[in-house]
């Protein structure tokens, strides 16, 4: 079973690159899909993701609660000669904000791993491509590595905010993105996996508390912010920093913390930011605008 980073590293030590190792493993487990078919299917996901970035950046959407923060970052990038967080982080953040806002506005995105956290991976992958340059094959490899990390998280813990809080959505997306960046930089499989663990450790316990139950506040900004954390975690892993707690145990801890989270912090919109005075009044105002459910949405011909 594709269940542990330990086994992933053992398999990767046999000579194939990490993305090829993962495709082969997946192909064995699925008992049917060939490596070539899987690679093509993931390439089409990458293309869909790229399309979501393009559409999101053209659309300049807003949400019900949030504005067009991606464009704000864009203007700031033109203005600020030397942004504090550097060109990659800022560009990745801009893309992540735009895509996550596009999702809130019913745009077409790729859940990665969830819809709420759909901005983080495209931000990191396409931000990296723009700032440092990377060919398609390499980018596809990075997406596969990200998917492999997500699979381990899904099997040992969870990827659902309703079960594990936001550490399981934006946290997992950040961990996946960290591994992807380490891979893009030519880091070892071990560095990829430890980078993912470093990121998750820094958001352990992050709750899911969407204001009014909408996938907007704090979701969209968490997408933007997690890209910065992922870049830093990747640099740390590339520098040789390793997690003292083995990556598999970090995921297990994340799962245990998620299960222990009170229900108010698991997508019920009854705790955290959703339960602040402003969160509550925003919800009231929105609910007030909603047409009563028995109203006929579409008249009979």
């Amino acid at each position: 079973m594709m269940r542990s980073f330990a086994e992933m590293l053992l398999r990767a030590a046999q000579g194939l690159s990490l993305d090829e190792t993962l495709l082969l493993w997946e192909s064995e487990e699925s008992g049917g899909s060939s490596v070539g078919w899987l690679r093509d299917a993931m390439a089409s996901r990458l293309a869909d993701m790229e399309r979501s970035v393009r559409e999101a950046e053209e659309a300049h959407c807003r949400g019900r609660l949030i504005g067009d923060d991606g464009s704000l970052i864009g203007l700031y990038r033109e203005r600020a000669a030397e942004p504090l967080s550097g060109p990659l982080v800022l560009r990745a953040c801009q893309i992540a904000l735009s895509v996550a806002t596009y999702n809130a506005a019913m745009g077409r995105i790729v859940a990665a791993p969830t819809a709420g956290s759909c901005g983080i991976l495209p931000g990191l992958l396409f931000g990296y491509e723009e700032v440092f340059g990377a060919d398609r094959e390499r980018l596809l490899g990075a997406l596969i590595v990200a998917g492999g990390v997500g699979e381990i998280v899904a099997r040992r813990a969870t990827l659902a905010g309703a079960e594990g809080g936001c550490q399981a959505e934006c946290g997992a997306a950040g961990a996946m993105g960290t591994a992807a960046l380490v891979f893009l930089r030519g880091g070892s499989a071990e560095a990829c996996v430890h980078g993912a663990a470093l990121l998750l450790k820094s958001v352990l316990g992050l709750i899911c508390d969407p204001v009014a139950g909408l996938v907007e506040v704090p979701c969209v900004k968490r997408n933007g912010l997690l890209t910065g954390l992922a870049v830093l975690a990747a640099d740390m892993a590339l520098a040789g920093v390793r997690s003292v707690i083995p990556p598999d145990e970090v995921i297990d801890a994340m799962g245990a913390v998620g299960r222990a989270l009170p229900e108010a912090f698991r997508e019920t919109a009854r705790g955290g930011l959703a339960a602040t005075p402003t969160g509550c009044s925003l919800r009231k105002a929105l609910v007030g605008e909603v047409p009563p459910l028995d109203a006929e949405e579409v008249q009979l011909p």
Partner: peptide, 13 residues
């Protein structure tokens, strides 16, 4: 599977 993790392609949110 990998395609469930990176996917589905969907209209949000």
């Amino acid at each position: 599977s990998l395609l469930d993790i990176i996917g589905p392609v969907m209209v949000g949110p």
